[in-house]
């Protein structure tokens, strides 16, 4: 088996999930300059809700096709996450929109803590298993394996990203979002309802996060109340890598980060003479984050954000 090809495929799959989560960070940051710490948790809630629905459906009608069951879970998880994000924005962020920077950032951490702990109370401390109901086909490409699930994940990610792209570039709402990101004041003067645009941004990001949450739990075969944290951090790193505030950047950054992680995990043992092993996989995202912030804080596609005063 060709390790390089295999790791590239794995990285691409993981990266497309990161990209979806990164979109939520980057859209909110683009408009509010706020790091929505709770976004990773929204992703986790999406996975949990979907798993609950899947469990219920399987209990009632075990003969349903697996793909349909998972899809139903997703269809419930998306609106649930949208409602959640809407509420978070309204209750926790909106009152602080004109407060000093530190305040909304601390609130965001508070919301993140609340969501994790609520999830722990509702779904428990244990890992929740993702039932093995999805097609398990496997193909060989250039000496590496690719599964049905991986194909579905990549296809669904690309579809979602294309949909978002159309939404932002081709619709009235998208235009209002872009205008608001440029300047809230001017957008308001031009008749854009800024509050509604901000709400919409959170809600759209959450819908995408729900999709990502289901994907990631299907991919790893489990979900956990704590899963959103690391996923969120990595996705944020991806957003920064691509250039925060930039939608195409988030997509690119997510894919790249996935590939970096997969290649890093595959080769770190050889590179360090066996000193560090593949359990350091989670470290790469942060090294990438720090390196990007040091050498190119604007990211690959972004505008400059560093201050040097």
């Amino acid at each position: 088996m060709d390790i390089l090809t295999q790791q590239l495929i794995n990285g691409l799959v993981l990266g497309s999930i990161y990209a979806l989560v990164a979109l939520g960070y980057t859209m909110v940051y683009g408009i509010l300059e706020l790091i929505n710490f709770a976004h990773g948790e929204v992703t986790m809630i999406g996975a949990m809700v979907a798993l609950t629905v899947i469990g219920l459906l399987l209990g009632m009608a075990p003969e349903l096709p697996g793909l349909m069951v998972v899809f139903s879970g997703l269809l419930v998880a998306i609106p649930a996450c949208m409602a959640l994000a809407f509420a978070i924005e309204k209750v926790a962020y909106r009152p602080l929109r004109r407060a000093p920077r530190l305040a909304p950032l601390i609130t965001a951490i508070g919301v993140s803590i609340i969501l994790q702990n609520v999830a722990m109370l509702v779904w428990g401390r244990q890992y929740v298993a993702f039932p093995a109901i999805l097609p398990q086909g496997q193909y060989e490409v250039f000496g590496a394996h690719i599964t049905d699930l991986q194909l579905v994940i990549v296809a669904l990610s690309l579809t979602t990203m294309a949909g978002l792209w159309l939404l932002v570039e081709r619709t009235r709402l998208g235009r209002a979002m872009r205008a608001t990101a440029q300047s809230k004041e001017v957008a308001a003067l031009m008749g854009v309802n800024v509050d509604r645009v901000i709400s919409a941004t959170f809600v759209i990001g959450a819908a995408i996060a729900a999709i990502a949450g289901v994907m990631v739990s299907a991919y790893y075969g489990l979900a956990h109340y704590h899963m959103g944290f690391l996923l969120g951090l990595k996705a944020f790193a991806a957003a920064v890598l691509g250039g925060i505030g930039n939608i195409a950047g988030a997509m690119l950054g997510g894919l790249l980060l996935g590939i970096i992680e997969a290649l890093g995990a595959g080769y770190i043992g050889d590179l360090t003479g066996g000193f560090l092993g593949s359990h350091y996989q989670d470290v790469f995202a942060f090294f990438v984050l720090i390196l990007v912030l040091v050498f190119r804080p604007s990211g690959l596609l972004g505008e400059r954000v560093a201050n040097r005063a």
Binding site: R101, A285, L293
Partner: peptide
């Protein structure tokens, strides 16, 4: 030299490392 909210994330990442 970065803006404050980046520092928050980087320090979070450092903790994880």
């Amino acid at each position: 030299r970065l803006r404050g909210d980046y520092l928050a994330i980087v320090t979070l990442g450092f903790h994880e490392i």
